[in-house]
Nucleic acid binder design. Structure first.
Lengths: 212, 212
DNA sequence: ACCGAACCGTAACGTTCGTTACGGTTTGAG
DNA sequence: CTCAAACCGTAACGAACGTTACGGTTCGGT
């Protein structure tokens, strides 16, 4: 019961139902019931089952729907000098931190983590693919281009990306998932993003600024 | 119904029951039932309820029990030069990665994350306190001592620790929680720990090695 | 206006599981 | 040995929820 609804053919009504499911997921987490979703979406359970097969199908479709909505930050490779790269990294990190700290992302990651524990669906895989991996796919070409332009120096681009991941997210994601209230302001996020980018450039840049 | 069993007075039999619960948690995740636990522990459900109050009480006691068993890596502040500090960081990072990638840690973090979503218990708080925060409490004195000895340079010790966290764990924990199979060998872990420590020293050390 | 498909709201069914109850057994103190 | 408390194994109860079924309604095509 997986492909009751094809990703490419979602009617407006179905999208509305998935948005309602998303809202339920944020409010109630994995404890959401088919009843609560149908109530929120003003639709019948029969429709939910006809469209999405079963509970897992509904959750899977919801995760996919959200993934299709998230605009992974686009990176421009036009001008490539150290300053432009730093600015790109800062912007990328800022968007990333903003997404990660959103209620939607937290709820989705939580349900995906708990499903990965029971092995009762592929939500973990999907979230991983559209979260971390999508970010890597976007940023790695930039890192490679920067290496070609002799701005960065590294041997393994994936390790390089993983270090950037660590410098940007640090303990933020796990603390949010565990319920810690970080209450990140946009100012905080910007400062953290700039700091992470500077540290990354210090580690991988070929012309590091002299330290004060 | 929280304090049916005091942490400081666990009989051997009770500890055995909690170990069985821990095993059930690793195998079945949050889907474990009181029946499966009683079967594994060869005890009656009545005993589980008498000792731990209810399902949440059992899970909470189990998380606490595991936390009391984990030996957070002890750091020695005896000799303090750059080489000794690096060795300490490497050892610390190695132990940390080993714990994080263990089946027990993954299962515990998963159940804590999903409970944090439903807000139905304080498991997230407990895991946070005994996981991330315990690590910070251990390492921060070392960082401060290293700063006093003019080996490291930083202004905020907590930010400094969070950067170390990011460099060591990177995307490892979230990938494991989402079900990605990293199959970390001890060799891999050692290499990653050494690399993270070197990067940390490069960022915060006062006598960074000249770059090749 | 007529028809059928899709959909809504609600009721009903069956399973799972948390929780409680109970009879039989072990264990340790006196 | 005796007795009471603790514990084991199992059965039973009740609630929650996934899933299905059904009667009434909307709506687009003819």
């Amino acid at each position: 019961m997986n492909s009751h609804v094809d990703m490419k053919e979602l009617t407006a009504r179905q999208q509305a139902v998935l948005d309602a499911t998303l809202a339920a997921l944020v409010d109630e987490g994995d404890a959401l019931t088919m009843s609560s979703v149908s109530r929120r979406a003003s639709c019948s359970k029969e429709t939910l089952y006809k469209w999405f097969g079963d509970r897992d199908g509904l959750l899977t479709a919801t995760v996919r729907w959200q993934a299709s909505k998230v605009n992974v930050p686009v990176v421009d490779k036009a001008t490539l000098d150290a300053a432009a790269l730093t600015a790109t990294l800062e912007s990328f990190a800022r968007d990333w931190l903003t997404v990660i700290s959103s209620g939607t992302s937290i709820a989705l990651n939580r349900v995906a983590v708990s499903h990965a524990g029971s092995g009762k669906s592929k939500l973990g895989e999907i979230v991983l693919k559209n979260g971390r991996n999508a970010m890597g796919l976007r940023l790695e070409p930039v890192l490679l281009a920067a290496r070609d332009a002799e701005i960065l120096a590294f041997t393994n681009v994936q390790d390089c990306f993983r270090t950037f991941f660590g410098l940007v997210l640090r303990d933020t994601q796990i603390r949010l998932l565990l319920g810690d209230d970080l209450s990140l302001t946009q100012t905080q996020i910007s400062a953290d993003a700039d700091n992470a980018s500077a540290q990354f450039m210090a580690l991988y840049g070929r012309n590091p600024h002299s330290k004060g």
